[in-house]
Structures are given as C-alpha cells and as structure tokens.
C-alpha cells in the first residue's frame, strides 16, 4: 500500500508555504508567477490525496479544472507582463508604482 495521506498533506503544506514565501519575497513578476504555480501544485497534491483517501473522483476532477484555470491564468498574466514590459522595460514589481496615489 502507499504512504499514508498525512505525509502527502505535510509535503503539500510545505510546498504551499514555499510558494507563499516566494510570492512575498521575490520582486521579479515572472518568478512570482512561478511561485503561484508552486502553490497551485500544492493544492493539486492535496486534492489528489483526499481523492484517494475518500475514494472519490471529485478531487481528481477538480485538479483537472485547476490545471485549466492555471493555464488561462498564466496566458493572461504573461500577456500583462509583456504589455507592461513594452512601457516600462522592466519586470520588477517595485518599478510598477505608477498607480501610487
């Protein structure tokens, strides 16, 4: 039999915390996007684990939808980054302070 679910959940929690720290720490917008992907993967791992524990296919379906939404999010997000780069020639979040009051 496989490893117990607690190990998977612990690993997912650590991965999620890593992604959250990355979003808070990094200043490159592209790397921040990658850290968001880390968090999404942690959530996916949790979904699959609970899907196995509960014997329910719903968790796997949800992972499928998360994948789709992640793809859409990355497409739009990178489009925004490219559009910003046209104007500011920078992908650093600190330089994007035009909307300061």
């Amino acid at each position: 039999m496989s490893i117990g679910p607690a190990w998977y959940l612990g690993l997912a929690a650590v991965l999620f915390a890593l992604g959250a720290i990355g979003v808070m720490v990094r200043r490159n917008v592209l790397v921040m996007f990658m850290c968001i992907e880390l968090m999404l993967n942690a959530a996916n791992l949790t979904f699959v684990t609970f899907s196995r524990v509960l014997g329910d296919v719903g968790g796997q379906s949800l992972v499928f939808f998360v994948l789709v939404v992640a793809a859409a999010e990355v497409v739009v997000g990178l489009g925004v980054v490219v559009a910003i780069f046209r104007r500011r020639a920078s992908t650093t979040a600190d330089d994007l302070h035009e909307m300061l009051g």
Binding site: D56, Q60, S61
Partner: peptide, 11 residues
C-alpha cells in the same frame, strides 16, 4: 477525513 465518501462517483 470528513464528509461522505464517493459523492461525485467512486474512484
């Protein structure tokens, strides 16, 4: 591990 099992179909 809460909730009903196999709500959305069994795995």
């Amino acid at each position: 591990v809460t909730g009903a099992h196999k709500v959305a179909g069994g795995l």
